[in-house]
Design a protein around this nucleic acid. Sequence first.
DNA 1: GCAGTCCTGCAACTCTGTTGCATTAGACCG
DNA 2: CGGTCTAATGCAACAGAGTTGCAGGACTGC
Lengths: 155, 155
Amino acid sequence: MRAVTLTDRDRAETLVERTGARVTRQRVEVLKILLAAPRALTHHEIEQRAHRGPRMDRVTIYRVLEWLTANGLAHKIAGDDRVWRFNAAEGHGRTHAHFHCSDCGEVICLDEVAAARNLRLPQGYRSQELELTVRGLCAACRPARRAPPAARHRH
Amino acid sequence: MRAVTLTDRDRAETLVERTGARVTRQRVEVLKILLAAPRALTHHEIEQRAHRGPRMDRVTIYRVLEWLTANGLAHKIAGDDRVWRFNAAEGHGRTHAHFHCSDCGEVICLDEVAAARNLRLPQGYRSQELELTVRGLCAACRPARRAPPAARHRH
DNA sequence: GCAGTCCTGCAACTCTGTTGCATTAGACCG
DNA sequence: CGGTCTAATGCAACAGAGTTGCAGGACTGC
């Protein structure tokens, strides 16, 4: 995980301000956490990071995440473990790709791909968004070739 | 929804038999329901259909679905509403595409697409499966051009 | 028919996310 | 700077999907 720099906090604050809504400590804090993360985080992970600072309620985090998503500042990904994961939404268009590790559940964003546009939908269906999901093993979970796999934890 | 034909029941039975494990009423019944459905079903929907026949426990359905998935007879899809949906797995390869209706949550399978194979993963990551998700509005949820939209229910 | 195993049903539980409501604290105005 | 108005927060209770443990039932092989 990248270190939380002043820049992340400032960027977070600026982004929240730009929406025109209230700039609260909680919104800035959560967005800062997302900006500092190299991958999508679960609510649980965000909560843990948030609790290093002053108290912030579970529910507030849910509501902030919802608000960030509604305002286009964060992006919500449905994982395979029934848990939402959130990204800072910078640079996310209507077409993007994610990698899901089938072992540890980690989710990262991949560069955009020109996903199949020759896709045929049934009569009357309309497409709004495309998402390409790659499932596989991340570097940490991939069985090593020589050395035995390092001990890992799930989640 | 297609009518449940004798063929579906027979096919279900044959498929379960082929695994070598026990052929139970519950397994055949659930697989039959999946085979008869034109789209992915939630546990809840499967339960409702199953309850037209003799008693079958909620938990048993969960376990049967898990078993079907593990044996390659069913396919599990994470929807945007935190609910698993299940398909009969016939014809599902390692690359497939689904359509998720962002309004009613319906999930259907699309024909396979040759999804981006020029995808670049980070160092050390390995891909096992590709899934293309198209989000949009299904025919029922799409705002009509002339007539007002018909009344609908969620789920 | 008997033993052993696999599967099912039931109850209780966990975990993620939501709702209702009283209280707090940003934003704005003077 | 202090007051006011309202959106946002904290707290508690709840809801729904899925899981676990265990006792009893049903297949299977002999």
